[in-house]
Amino acid sequence: MAGQLAVDASSSPETPAVGSPPVLVAKGVGVGYGGVRAVDDVSISISKGEVVGIIGPNGAGKSSLLGALGGQVKRTQGVITLGDRDISSLMPHDRARLGLVRTFQTTSEFARMTVYENLVTAAEGDRGASLRSVVLHPRQTAQRELELRARAWSIMERFEMTHTADLYGRELSGGQRRLVEIMRCLMRHPRVLLLDEPMVGVAPHLTGKLIDDLRGIAQEGLGILIVEHALEVVRKLCDRVVVMAFGKVIAAGEFEEVVRDPVVQAAYLS
């Protein structure tokens, strides 16, 4: 075990692998559904430029943890900070405006909007698209539209998706929908990207390209936390891996070491 991430979930978050100060830190986070503790006292951190993978069997609490970080799921305990700001009590849209964006386990494209609209809308979650701006500042709104247009096309070019610009979200394949979600996140200039099983539905021959794309995004300075079942993807993509079971972190470190851990093999891999 490389010891990059504290295996003891109750301990303070570890020093990140990349060496830069962590951008997202969660300390002692808990999530409960009735009497069930889906996430129990989990601590985790992500640094700029780092890709951290979360693996674990079904029901381990991976998606609930992502929900707690993104604000979609109410946490019962713990503190979450983004940079030097405590975001524990912020609504999801406020967290997104600070740079914490996410994708979902089931695809969440805007089905009756085109891919282009999916992208430009994602960048509008601030005052630029407010009713007041639209009515009182039409010139600035028009100028902003031009900027968003250029950015949207640039991102679609990067992911080789320009041919889908005029397609509705509901007209895309499963893999294309995953790409739209990721492209949409990038429109917001995020600091941290939370990805919930982004490879589901992606054709096997294209997963390699998506891995390269995500690595490229991370190298530009984003922190990425990814929940993924495909271990081969995790091995190729992630700098560090966190293993969860029964709502707790049971192991953490580099992939090759984690998968050899007897505790992990007992709880998950076997």
């Binding site: 430009v120 009713l131 639209v134 009515v135």
Partner: peptide, 26 residues
């Protein structure tokens, strides 16, 4: 107004509230 960026935000909210919220829409 419907054709404006504000109207586009409304359609995003209509199509997927959680995703729209996760993209910063209140």
């Amino acid at each position: 107004l419907s054709r404006s960026p504000w109207g586009r935000s409304l359609r995003a909210m209509r199509d997927h509230e959680d995703a729209a919220s996760a993209m910063g829409l209140n």
